[in-house]
Design a protein around this nucleic acid. Structure first.
Length: 203
DNA sequence: TTGTGTTTTATTGCCTCC
DNA sequence: GGAGGCAATAAAACACAA
């Protein structure tokens, strides 16, 4: 066979896109049967005026396209879940930072109180607006669930509660990353996917 | 019109199953 | 060992901005 003949025959056999009707029919079949049997492929081929081989290839390519679209969908779902978690984590990290700051304030106040204790041993006072020993940042007081002044009825001794809070604070400080550590969502180990490398969600 | 990116059809080579 | 599936890739067809 000469090159001319080859060219001519290849030109005559130029690849053509399937018609809209052909594609539509194939799509419809794919919805119910993504991996049709030989008989069905032959029927489709007869019906659509295509070679059974073309039908087989179309289904093969269609499965590949379908699979990659499915992967894209899963990826975007995972990414959106990740983003949501990341922002939740960031909010919690900030809240934790605020709490630690409050704990430090409390500790300072407690240290100061211990210094005054000898002078003031039998004269325990309640927290009031005039004596803001336990008045945390009013705007953030809800974050530590500390009662505000208005909750006081004048009979509560906060010294024991303060000790509890300080003990808790020491435990918390020991177990959580401090603000100075600059622990972020990405850098903290509990979400570190070291097994799959950095930026594992990027393909 | 043309260069470039995307989609679609087809081929190749490897793998699994019967 | 043959049939059929899949992944990777080639190449034609198409879309579209410049």
């Amino acid at each position: 066979m000469s090159t001319t003949t080859i060219k001519k025959s290849s030109k005559n056999n130029r690849r053509k896109r399937f018609s809209d009707d052909q594609v539509k029919s194939l799509e419809t079949t794919f919805e119910t049967e993504s991996r049709p049997e030989l008989r069905l492929k032959q029927n489709l081929a007869n019906k659509l005026g295509l070679q059974p081989r073309q039908i087989a290839i179309w289904f093969q390519n269609k499965r590949a396209r379908s699979k990659s679209k499915q992967i894209e969908r899963e990826y975007s779902m995972l990414k959106s879940n990740y983003d949501k978690l990341a922002s939740q984590f960031e909010a919690m990290r900030k809240e934790n930072q605020n709490l630690l700051i409050q704990v430090q304030r409390l500790r300072k106040m407690a240290d100061k109180r211990d210094g005054d204790k000898n002078d003031d041993k039998n004269n325990i006072t309640l927290a009031t607006s005039e004596n803001p020993r336990f008045l945390l940042d009013i705007n953030n007081s809800h974050e530590l669930c500390m009662p505000s002044c208005s909750d006081l009825n004048g009979k509560v001794d906060y010294l024991e509660q303060e000790t509890d809070v300080l003990n808790m604070a020491r435990i918390v400080e020991g177990s959580l990353a401090s603000p100075e550590n600059g622990c972020s969502f990405e850098s903290c180990t509990f979400l570190d996917n070291t097994g799959s490398g950095p930026q594992w969600w990027d393909f």
